[in-house]
Amino acid sequence: MNAARKPWEERSAALVVAPARPRKLAKVPFVELADGRLQGVVSSGSDIERVYVSSLTAANHSFHCSTNNNRPCGGIRRGGCNHLRALADEAVLQYGVERVARYVRAEVAEDATTGAAVLAAADPWHEPSAGAPVFSRFLRHLAYLELAATTEPLPELHWFPAGGAVR
């Protein structure tokens, strides 16, 4: 005998957010569901120094896309731009379509599988917004790889088991 499993609310090591899935980063190096937006960075196909910062706001389904130097994307139409479409596709690879749709409050069909389906359901409309906060989130993201490793123990990571073996 052993006591029964506690409900999720009463567990110290309860899984709250499923780990991201790996994906190829060449085209879309950064995507996240944060600050009430699907947001991220898309590398320019023509200029290696340029990236596009795209975001879709969950609350009202407005979107914006501009370069890191704050020039507006030339491809903006009702329903998004190519960068936003790439971003939505990669977000679906990284988080799964259900989580992306739920976060941006898009009502997709049960059999939806793609970023395009999420965008079709959200029907984004353009409203200029600042790209700088998203770009700085990306730079912060990149900065993680510059931080040093350590062999001092981090006991608090016992709260964060590496998961993902439920297969």
């Binding site: 994906r23 980063l25 990284q94 993680y144 931080l147 040093a148 350590t150 062999t151 981090l154």
Partner: peptide, 8 residues
């Protein structure tokens, strides 16, 4: 041994 990383 530990290190910071990114989610992907």
């Amino acid at each position: 041994v530990s290190t910071p990383k990114v989610d992907t």
